[in-house]
Write a protein that binds this DNA or RNA. Structure first.
Ligand SMILES: [Zn+2]
Ligand SMILES: [Zn+2]
Ligand SMILES: [Zn+2]
Ligand SMILES: [Zn+2]
Lengths: 138, 138
DNA sequence: TAGATATCTCCAGAGACTATAGGTTTGGAG
DNA sequence: CTCCAAACCTATAGTCTCTGGAGATATCTA
């Protein structure tokens, strides 16, 4: 039986975050000691590791909730699991695309400024004032 | 003299957002009509466009606040302006790097799942349970 | 058994908005 | 000029994923 602090040390997830995951329904409410403190078992450790890893991979709480629910039905086909992961991959790719466009604009903007002239002539300020100087949309 | 709705239509910034920018100190508090409604001039239109464009480029509110403050001193050198833009470019690049790593892991994970087997055997679920299957860190 | 540490619940804050409720002003039609 | 709908006002709460604090209680160690 682990206290919440033990669980925290073993998974690297902060104590308030563990309580938050419980509140969000990702962790089932833990058993309690006589004095009302949470007590965990290996099972909970594994689930918390799952949650943490999924979060590290960028999945949001509701996606993780779905995945946990699906994994409770081990004999069903994994189509929905696949869909959640694929959707997430797509959203990561979309974000990368957007950020690359930003990177290009910012590179252009920064490259025109040597940081050593008057602000009234600064290309950074002018670029921010006028989207017409940009190459693309954002 | 423009109403807040006019300003909104011309810049594409929603009315509550304009009020929010005022509250955050990005827009100086507008003049008011006799009945206490905000009235704007061209000057405000330009500043709002600046703010919007900076936000579209991903700068956060406090960076924009600094940029506005700096642009009030047009004869000073633009070193700080340059620094803000460069720092932001760096943070965009860092984000791209992180997302690319995620993309790789997710690609690997998704590619091992055809969406058509039992959840208990699903590689997606196994990968989420075990970071050891990942190639890198996140 | 005292004191130190850990835990409990509840609440607020971060960032950048967005939306609602309940009340007031404005602008145009009749 | 009067009336009404549309636009506006303020204040507050909700979004998302935590994180930190206050004040009270429990547990562990010496
Ligand atoms: Zn410059
Ligand atoms: Zn632009
Ligand atoms: Zn599968
Ligand atoms: Zn991993």
């Amino acid at each position: 039986m682990l206290s919440i602090g033990d669980l925290s040390k073993r998974t690297g997830v902060k104590v308030p975050t563990i309580r938050y995951y419980e509140q969000m329904g990702l962790l089932t409410a833990a058993e309690r000691s006589e004095g009302n403190q949470r007590r965990y078992e290996r099972h909970d450790l594994e689930r918390l590791a799952f949650i943490r890893h999924a979060r590290d991979l960028g999945l949001d709480i509701s996606a993780i909730r779905e995945l946990i629910a699906l994994s409770q039905h081990p004999h069903q086909p994994c189509g929905n699991v696949d869909r959640i992961a694929s959707d997430h991959l797509k959203s990561v790719r979309d974000k990368i695309e957007k950020l690359k466009k930003l990177e290009q604009e910012l590179e252009r903007i920064v490259s025109h400024c040597d940081g050593d002239h008057a602000i009234e002539d600064c290309y950074v300020i002018r670029s921010l004032s006028d989207h017409g100087l940009c190459d693309g949309e954002h």
